[in-house]
């Protein structure tokens, strides 16, 4: 009698546990679509590349184009800017990266113009402040970037990100 009572307890415990586990799995399965719907939708993902004609840019000029809703800086660097970027001692950098690793053609610097601190856009017009290293200056919290888009001073943790891009022709690039 006592044995069958203990059996009942075990059976009941097992049923509670099994039912509870099934309920938890079901709840998680139902929760996932509700969470994942907030991730980028198919149409947003589809807008993944942008083609740009860069034939009009003179050395020293830069343009901003929009890719995935973010600003992409395309800068045709002057010879002096290229030399400055190449001459930097990598050990002195917060996020060490050689200039050669950040460009495909040394004249063209293409970076995502989103400050790696908190997402502001440093000024990219000729009249904007360029900061102490001649690249970009972020007005929000004072990050200075050099002519290779590397972080040199201020709160940003990493260099401006180089987006995936390819030269379709000498004057045509595809970002993304």
């Amino acid at each position: 009698m006592a044995d069958s009572h203990a059996d009942d307890e075990n059976r009941r415990e097992f049923l509670y546990l099994a039912a509870g586990a099934m309920g938890a799995v079901g709840a998680a399965a139902f929760a996932w679509p509700l969470i994942d719907q907030m991730n980028p939708a198919a149409d947003v993902l589809a807008l993944a590349s942008t083609e740009v004609d860069i034939s009009a840019l003179e050395p020293g000029q830069a343009i901003t184009v929009k890719w995935r809703g973010q600003p992409i800086f395309i800068r045709r660097r002057t010879q002096q800017e290229i030399e400055e970027a190449a001459a930097v001692d990598l050990a002195s950098l917060r996020d060490p990266e050689a200039d050669a690793e950040r460009v495909q053609k040394s004249e063209w610097l293409i970076v995502n113009g989103t400050c790696t601190h908190l997402g502001c856009v440093p000024g990219n017009r000729v009249s904007d402040r360029k900061g102490e290293y001649g690249g970009w200056f972020c007005p929000c919290h004072g990050s200075h970037y050099d002519t290779s888009g590397r972080i040199r001073k201020g709160p940003a943790p990493t260099n401006l990100v180089v987006p995936p891009y390819e030269f379709l022709t000498d004057t045509q690039i595809k970002i993304g």
């Binding site: 969470i35 907030m38 939708a41 947003v44 908190l118 997402g119």
Partner: peptide, 25 residues
């Protein structure tokens, strides 16, 4: 932009969290 970017400070998952909050890039 600035306030949602705060979450990019989270190690490893930061970028994914921010894209999830934005629903885009």
């Amino acid at each position: 932009k600035v306030i949602t970017s705060l979450f990019s400070a989270v190690p490893i998952f930061g970028e994914s969290i921010v894209e999830w909050l934005w629903g885009g890039f």
